[in-house]
Design a protein around this nucleic acid. Structure first.
Length: 372
DNA sequence: TAGGCGTGGGC
DNA sequence: TGCCCAAGCCT
């Protein structure tokens, strides 16, 4: 494997980034940076948490909503956790929202509202791990930290034709990135690597002909870029089955309860559901309902999670007057702002309970991926 | 360390 | 259509 000259690599990449970088709501462009504008650590942190395992297109609307409602980390820290979860609803991986709020409180209360400025210190905060600490330190505080996300893994395994499967290859990747990261503009270097991975060095059909660092790339020489990174095969996802119960009051209010604070959809709201059995033979139907009512079947919904696929029988009851003590009645005009994850919005839709989906308000742009 | 943890879009 | 993937973290 040829050794890459860091100085030449940095020059080629940064030159490309200055010309072809993406404009993103949380990003300070190189031009603005040169004119003296500094990134806001709060906005960098918020964007990085939202972007964990989540596409830029999905994040944009949520980022705008959050920063409009909570302009500073202190504002976010002062909000009730339930409000944060409700604003996060639809974005997924809800532990991120719980950790986001916990982190905001820590920064506000013990760091006097200022984020720590080193990767090592940032990494001690909830929800901030190896990647995110390095990214914030580099982008917001100019620390030449090795920023390695999925994009960078893809770029680097192709550059060096690393055939070791992930995650075993991670130490080698990190070491290589550390050797390439410059002391000057380390944040732009990191963002350039990620933009390159997102727009040129894509998982399928990479645009090697447009790549600013193809001269340094081993994989492209033999047209093998698409072979990297090597990943282990994923196991088949099991099926689970359960029932959901949508109770309606005469005034149209729907009965909701709060899920346990940790675990699957932790802290989020739902119409009552049975346990989700892996066997598919659990007690479903009215027997599993949280209280007596005139339960009527209205069909099934399906939803794919990361590690299992769920089918929920949906039951509906009208003219219910008393729910149970572990929940609340949500009026029609309030349902949209409840902390309902997407799977539970599907349940309400199947039960014909009107509620704008969270993604309709924000309007996630669909557009095709763009090539610079 | 490997598995839990969401969602929507692209192909 | 079903699978893969997206700026990972936590336990």
């Amino acid at each position: 494997m040829p050794t890459i000259n860091p100085t030449a690599f940095q020059a080629a990449l940064i030159t490309w980034y200055d010309r072809h970088h993406r404009e993103l709501p949380w990003r300070v462009s190189p031009r603005a940076r040169a004119a003296g504008q500094k990134p806001d650590p709060y906005r960098i942190w918020l964007s990085e948490i939202m972007l964990q395992q989540t596409t830029v297109a999905a994040v944009k609307a949520y980022f705008e909503k959050f920063t409009a409602r909570w302009p500073s980390v202190g504002d976010l820290a002062a909000a009730p956790e339930g409000d944060v979860l409700a604003q996060w609803a639809g974005l997924g991986y809800y532990a991120r929202a719980r950790n986001l709020h916990a982190c905001a409180k820590t920064v506000s209360e013990t760091h006097d509202g200022a984020f720590p400025e080193t990767a090592a210190a940032l990494k001690t905060l909830p929800g901030i791990g190896e990647y995110t600490s390095a990214a914030i330190a580099a982008i917001a505080f100019d620390e030449p930290a090795a920023v390695v996300d999925g994009n960078v893994e893809r770029v680097v395994t192709r550059l060096a034709a690393i055939g070791t499967p992930l995650p075993k290859a991670k130490p080698q990747i990190r070491s290589l990135v550390a050797g390439l990261t410059p002391d000057r503009r380390p944040g732009d270097f990191a963002q350039a690597m990620m933009d390159l991975g997102a727009t040129i060095c894509t998982p399928t059909r990479p645009a090697c002909v447009l790549c600013p660092v193809r001269a340094f790339c081993t994989a492209t020489k033999t047209a093998e870029a698409e072979r990297f990174p090597v990943k282990p095969k994923k196991a088949a996802v099991p099926e689970r089955r359960g029932a959901a119960f949508v109770a309606l009051r005469p005034d149209g209010a729907v009965f909701l309860r709060k899920r346990p604070g940790t675990g699957m959809l932790g802290g989020m709201s739902e119409p009552p559901t049975s346990d989700w059995s892996a066997r598919g033979d659990g007690a479903l139907g009215p027997d599993a309902a949280p209280f007596e009512a005139n339960w009527q079947p209205v069909g099934e919904i399906e939803h794919g999670f990361t590690h299992f696929r769920l089918t929920l029988e949906v039951w509906r009851a009208e003219n219910v007057r008393d729910g149970s003590s572990d929940g609340w009645w949500s009026r029609p005009e309030d349902v949209a702002s409840e902390a309902l994850p997407t799977v539970m919005r599907k349940v309400l839709k199947a039960a014909k309970v009107a509620h704008p989906p969270p993604r309709e308000a924000g309007g996630v742009a669909k557009g095709r991926k763009t090539r610079p």
